[in-house]
C-alpha cells in the first residue's frame, strides 16, 4: 500500500511525515472503518455513486478549509469558546458549498438535499478541527483534512458502488449487469437500496478492512 502511494506524483515531493498525514487516514486510520465517524451520511447518500462522489468532494472542500482556517486561528481562539468558533467556521463553509452545488450541480444538489447541510454534524469535520487543526500548522492541517476527507470518500464510494450495482444493476448510471443475467432470472436486490442494505454493506466493509489492515482499536 505505502509503496504504491509513493509513486503518486505530488505526494513524492512531500516529506515522509507529511505523506503519512495524507496516507494514514486512507487506510490504516480510516475515519469511517477505524474510527467509525461520519456514519450517518455514509449510510444516507450511498444509494448511487454520483451523489456519493459529490458528497465526498463537498467534504474534501469543507474539511480542508475548516482545518486550515481553524489552524490559522488556533493561537487566537479563546479556549472556552473553542468549539463554538469551530462550529461557526464549519457551518459557514457548509452553507457556501451548498449554495455552490445548488448553482452549478442542481440535479445532484436536489438528490443530496439535506445531507449537504448535515456535513455540519459530520463528526469527522469537528473531530479533525479539535484533534488536529487546533494543534498543528495550516499546511499540515490542510494535508490532514485532505487525507481524512479522501479516506471518508473511498469508503463512501465503495458502499455506493455496492449498493448501486446490487440494488439497481447500474454503476454511475451505466448498466453493468448484462441482460442475460436478468434473462436467467436474476432480480435486483431491492434491499440494498434501503437503509438495512447500507448497514450490511458498511458492516462487511469495516470487517474486511479491519481484518486486512490488522489495526483495530477497540
Amino acid at each position: 500500500m505505502a509503496t504504491l502511494i509513493d509513486k503518486i506524483p505530488g505526494l513524492a515531493q512531500l516529506s515522509k511525515k507529511d505523506r503519512e498525514i495524507v496516507v494514514d487516514p486512507l487506510w490504516d486510520n480510516n475515519p469511517i472503518t477505524l474510527q467509525v465517524l461520519g456514519i450517518c451520511s455514509a449510510l444516507a447518500v450511498t444509494t448511487k455513486v454520483q451523489p456519493a462522489l459529490v458528497m465526498s468532494a463537498a467534504l474534501v472542500f469543507v474539511l480542508t478549509m475548516s482545518n486550515v482556517v481553524i489552524s490559522v486561528l488556533r493561537n487566537y481562539i479563546p479556549s472556552k469558546v473553542r468549539m463554538i468558533v469551530e462550529l461557526a467556521v464549519i457551518s459557514s463553509l457548509v452553507i457556501i458549498i451548498d449554495e455552490f452545488l445548488k448553482a452549478f450541480l442542481f440535479d445532484v444538489a436536489k438528490e443530496l438535499s439535506v445531507f449537504v447541510s448535515l456535513i455540519v454534524t459530520n463528526c469527522i469535520v469537528m473531530g479533525r478541527a479539535e484533534a488536529y487543526a487546533m494543534a498543528n500548522g495550516p499546511f499540515r492541517s490542510a494535508l490532514d483534512g485532505i487525507g481524512n476527507a479522501l479516506g471518508y470518500g473511498v469508503i463512501l464510494l465503495l458502499v455506493a458502488s455496492g449498493r448501486e450495482i446490487l440494488g439497481g444493476g447500474t454503476w454511475f448510471g451505466l448498466p453493468v449487469v448484462p441482460q442475460f443475467v436478468y434473462d436467467a432470472g436474476y432480480v435486483n436486490v431491492g434491499l440494498m437500496l434501503l437503509p438495512p442494505g447500507a448497514f450490511i454493506l458498511l458492516g462487511l466493509i469495516i470487517w474486511v478492512q479491519r481484518s486486512i489492515s490488522g489495526k483495530v482499536i477497540d
Binding site: 481562539i77 469558546v81 459557514s92 452553507i95 449554495e99 455552490f100 445548488k102
Partner: peptide, 20 residues
Amino acid sequence: FMLIICVACAVGVSVVAMGL
C-alpha cells in the same frame, strides 16, 4: 473575538448566497 468571527462568517455566507 466572537464578534469578529461571526461578522466574517456572515459576510462570507451572504456574499456567496447573493452572488449565486
